[in-house]
């Protein structure tokens, strides 16, 4: 699904050049659950942003579903992003002025889904994330865990094939964190590809493969062995 070949990302600031990513090679298969780990500043989030078409790269080749991303204009990238990719952030990034249901509905607006269908799909998602009883609440009226559940709901409402999660449990306590990880794992079971950046070995254990980054370079890759029970 995703193929990164020798991707490098440079930052220039006051004449000093910093390499955020250096010759990164990475493949993500359809239906895979991948974790990216590494210390702060190693380039995890940059890598995730490039995969999410939010950021650009200077060198290398990035192929998303057989399309060379460097050949695409902003409009097409926007189209891919809204149709195929869902995002989950550490600090939720819900819109304060919108209710739970409206936050979830938002991506469908931009996809120009008709109103009746939007309503239907939102109800389904609300049900899936068990937030039906809070649908008219505003984000500030919810706990962190509930907010993140809404964020996940928003990420999946457009039924994307890829979910990118940046430290999704970073602002949650362990019970809430487990809850979110269970949701992501369930989505993955249903066929959605998940790429997650995390510090937590526990969270990473939900994934099938872990890529470790250090100073912008991939240092190791290993399969996660799941206990049978």
């Amino acid at each position: 699904m995703i193929r990164l070949h020798n991707i490098s990302k440079l930052y220039r600031s006051q004449g000093i050049e910093t390499r955020a990513l250096n010759d990164v090679d990475l493949r993500v298969q359809e239906g895979e659950f991948l974790s990216i780990m590494g210390p702060s500043g190693c380039g995890k989030t940059t890598l995730l942003n490039i995969i999410g078409l939010l950021d650009t790269y200077e060198e290398g080749l990035f192929v998303f579903r057989d399309q060379d991303i460097s050949q695409l204009d902003e409009k097409t990238k926007l189209q891919i992003r809204k149709e195929q990719i869902g995002f989950v952030f550490q600090n939720f990034n819900l819109i304060d002025d919108l209710t739970v249901a409206e936050n979830i509905e938002l991506p469908l607006h931009y996809l120009k889904v008709p109103r009746s269908e939007r309503r239907e799909r939102v109800l389904k998602v609300l049900d899936a994330i068990s937030m039906g009883h809070r649908r008219e609440f505003f984000p500030y009226q919810l706990s962190g865990g509930q907010q993140q559940r809404v964020a996940v709901g928003r990420a999946i409402v457009s039924e994307p094939s890829l979910i990118l999660a940046d430290e999704p449990t970073g602002n949650l306590d362990s019970a809430q964190g487990n809850d979110i990880m269970e949701m992501l794992a369930r989505l993955n079971d249903q066929g959605t590809t998940v790429v997650m950046v995390t510090h937590s070995a526990h969270d990473a254990s939900y994934s099938q493969r872990i890529v470790r980054l250090l100073d912008g370079e991939v240092t190791s890759e290993k399969k996660v062995l799941h206990a049978p029970f």
């Binding site: 809204k82 819900l94 819109i95 996809l111």
Partner: peptide
């Protein structure tokens, strides 16, 4: 800023 950024991530264009 965060709100409009998030809207962009979710597919809003500059025009939106």
């Amino acid at each position: 800023i965060r709100e409009s950024a998030m809207r962009k991530v979710l597919g809003a264009s500059k025009f939106d």
